[in-house]
C-alpha cells in the first residue's frame, strides 16, 4: 500500500472509530450487568443529535468557554495524526513528535479547564482542578514509558518507537515493556477519566472529574467535547495496542484489521475493568498514579542499570 492510501486509511479510521470504542465499552458493561445495553452505534447517534441541537450559553461565559470545546477537539484531532496505527509511519512524523503529542493534549486540557472556570460554577471548578491535578502525575508516567521506548528503539519518533521493530524488543526486554504497558494502561484510564479514577456513566454532578468539568456545555459544543474525549480514548488505546501488539504480518490488508481488533479488545478490557472495579476514593487516586509512575520508572531502571 502506498503512502497516500495508507494515510487516508489512517485518517478515516482515526476519525470514524473513536465513538465505537465508547459503544463497545458501554455494551461490555451492559453485558456484565445482565442488561441488553444501548446499541453499539449509540455514541454516533448521540453525536449526530448533539450537532443538530441548539445551545444554551451561560451569561457568565466569554469566548474562552467556546474555545475550550474547539481547542480540546482540534488538539486531540491533530494528536491522532501523530501516532502510528499499524506498522508504518503516522501521517505526520518527525523527530520529537512525541513531545508535541503530549503537549497537544496538554493544550486541550488547559482550554477545557479554563472553559470550566469560565462558567463560575463550583462543580466545574472542582472538576477542572482534579483534571489538571491528576494529569500532573499521569504525565511523568507517560514520559517515563517514552524513555523506555526511546532507549530500546533509539528513535525519537513515535512511528519509530512503536514501529514493528518493537516486536524484537519484547523478546529481550519483555519485563520493561510489560511494566510500561501496565503503566500506560493506568494512564489511559486516568487520562480518559474511566473507573477506577472516575465514573463516566453518572453523567451528572456525582461524576468527579471530566464529566463534571463539561457540565455547562450543550449542543454542538458539547458534541465537540464528547468527540474530542473519544478521540483521546482512541489515541491512548492505539498507543497501548501498538505497545502490546507491535508485530506486523507484512501485508497492510491484514495489519489494519489486527489493529482494529486490538483496539476493540482494549475497549472490552476497559469495560471489564469498569464492571469489576469500584471507583477509588478521591484521595487514593494519586497513589495509583504514583504507582504507574513507579512502574515505568522501574522499567527504565531495569534497562539502564
Amino acid at each position: 500500500m502506498n503512502t497516500i492510501i495508507h494515510d487516508s486509511v489512517h485518517v478515516v479510521l482515526a476519525f470514524s472509530l473513536p465513538p465505537l470504542l465508547l459503544g463497545v465499552i458501554a455494551k461490555t458493561k451492559a453485558l456484565f450487568a445482565g442488561r441488553v445495553g444501548p446499541p453499539l452505534l449509540q455514541p454516533y447517534y448521540d453525536l449526530f443529535k448533539l450537532f443538530q441541537k441548539g445551545s444554551v450559553y451561560s451569561t457568565t461565559t466569554t469566548w474562552v468557554f467556546r474555545a475550550g470545546a474547539v481547542v480540546g477537539f482540534v488538539s486531540a484531532g491533530i494528536a491522532v495524526l501523530l501516532i502510528p496505527l499499524s506498522g508504518s509511519a503516522a501521517p505526520i512524523s518527525f523527530t520529537g513528535d512525541l513531545i508535541l503529542f503530549a503537549y497537544l493534549l496538554g493544550l486541550g486540557r488547559f482550554f477545557t479547564a479554563s472553559a470550566a472556570l469560565d462558567t463560575g460554577s463550583a462543580f466545574e471548578g472542582m472538576g477542572a482542578a482534579r483534571e489538571v491535578t491528576f494529569a500532573c502525575l499521569a504525565e511523568p508516567a507517560f514520559f517515563l514509558g517514552l524513555l523506555v521506548l526511546a532507549k530500546l528503539s533509539g528513535s525519537l519518533q513515535l512511528s519509530g518507537m512503536l514501529g514493528s521493530s518493537l516486536a524484537t524488543h519484547w523478546a529481550n526486554a519483555g519485563d520493561s515493556l510489560a511494566l510500561v504497558l501496565l503503566s500506560w494502561f493506568i494512564v489511559l484510564l486516568a487520562e480518559n477519566s474511566r473507573i477506577p479514577f472516575d465514573d463516566p456513566n453518572t453523567h451528572l454532578e456525582l461524576t468527579m472529574i471530566h464529566e463534571v468539568m463539561v457540565l455547562d456545555h450543550g449542543g454542538p459544543a458539547f458534541g465537540m467535547i464528547l468527540y474530542g474525549a473519544a478521540l483521546k480514548l482512541f489515541v491512548f488505546g492505539a498507543l497501548v495496542v501498538r505497545l502490546a501488539v507491535p508485530m506486523t504480518v507484512g501485508s497492510a490488508w491484514l495489519d489494519w484489521p489486527i489493529f482494529v481488533a486490538g483496539l476493540l479488545v482494549v475497549a472490552v478490557v476497559i469495560g471489564v475493568v469498569e464492571s469489576t472495579m469500584a471507583r477509588l476514593r478521591l484521595t487514593r487516586v494519586p497513589v495509583l498514579l504514583v504507582a504507574a509512575c513507579l512502574l515505568s520508572a522501574f522499567a527504565i531502571i531495569l534497562l539502564v542499570r
Partner: peptide
C-alpha cells in the same frame, strides 16, 4: 485548525437557536 473549528462552531450556532441562561448549578 482552531480557527476552522471555531468557524465551524460559529456557523453551527448561527443555524441553531442560541439562548443565554445562568450557569447550571444543579
Amino acid at each position: 485548525g482552531t480557527l476552522l473549528g471555531g468557524i465551524a462552531l460559529w456557523i453551527r450556532n448561527r443555524r441553531q437557536s442560541v439562548e443565554r441562561g445562568t450557569t447550571w448549578a444543579c
